[in-house]
Design a protein around this nucleic acid. Structure first.
Lengths: 86, 86, 86, 86
DNA sequence: TCGGAAATCAAGACCC
DNA sequence: GGGTCTTGATTTCCGA
């Protein structure tokens, strides 16, 4: 299928919308990739400072689990409180 | 080992440094998680607009590969040029 | 738990099966390790011959990417065609 | 730089040699990829048979460590024996 | 030869 | 529940 044919399939406005979606997603992904780089760099500093970066990762992961569990507890509490309203 | 004992093992300054590293990393990861949410929301819009989000993901992924490939081509060229200097 | 006790937990046939699985996996991993060695040796030859092995690695990696990219293009095409069926 | 120019830089024999190196490496890497697939398939069988594939992986890894340690012991022994010859 | 950086690979999370 | 994304761990490669 030629380029001209394909253009016939999709209106200008729709094609423009498609471009915008792609641009937004790619922008967000680029920012996300930057953050990944930033995090890696902090871990490099961690190591340079003398901490064990593997242990540090474990620490962070444990803290995240705690946060998640706490959030679940609160969700459960909300459920209970909501049930009392009934 | 008690909490007090453990505190004896690490100077105040070092503990403070540790806290700072953790705070920085957790901040960056929080921002990253937000972006993940943002991206997901855009894909929702994409679908609501009538595009096939699976196709869209594939498109984005192909475009990323193209960019990477181009970057690698340049890296290869640099390698060639560097090799010629030897 | 003693060795004798453990033997009670698993029938002879099952233990034999376990040994066979382990043997097969270890055999395959040994072959894989040999190939890794072979590849490393070829790169040594490459360097001895006067080629830049870093450049060579990049070349190989780019060729692999090309193959992958082609496969993904086809996958995208399939997606398009599938989407048209809906 | 055009294709013709680049061909001027490298003799026919050298270019042929380059192609051979690439072919050898790519052949070896293809075989290695097959083995990776084979190993994955065996783990699938392991799981289908009812063993815990994660435990199995750990087991294999421990046995490999043992082998490595044994190899180190032998190397150490060789060192001692060699020292006695002096 | 050692340590760090990067690729690779499998496990887990998460969404559809 | 199927498939994709992400994370975590292992391995591999290169430079000092």
């Amino acid at each position: 299928m030629s380029e001209a044919d394909r253009q016939d399939q999709m209106g200008d406005a729709t094609r423009e919308k498609l471009r915008q979606f792609i641009a937004r997603i790619e922008r967000l992904e680029a920012e996300k990739a930057e953050l990944t780089t930033d995090i890696r760099e902090v871990y490099s500093e961690v190591k340079a400072f003398g901490f064990d970066s593997k242990v540090m990762r474990k620490l962070i992961s444990l803290r995240k689990q705690d946060v998640n569990e706490r959030a679940e507890q609160e969700a459960l509490l909300d459920l209970y409180l909501g049930a009392l309203d009934d």
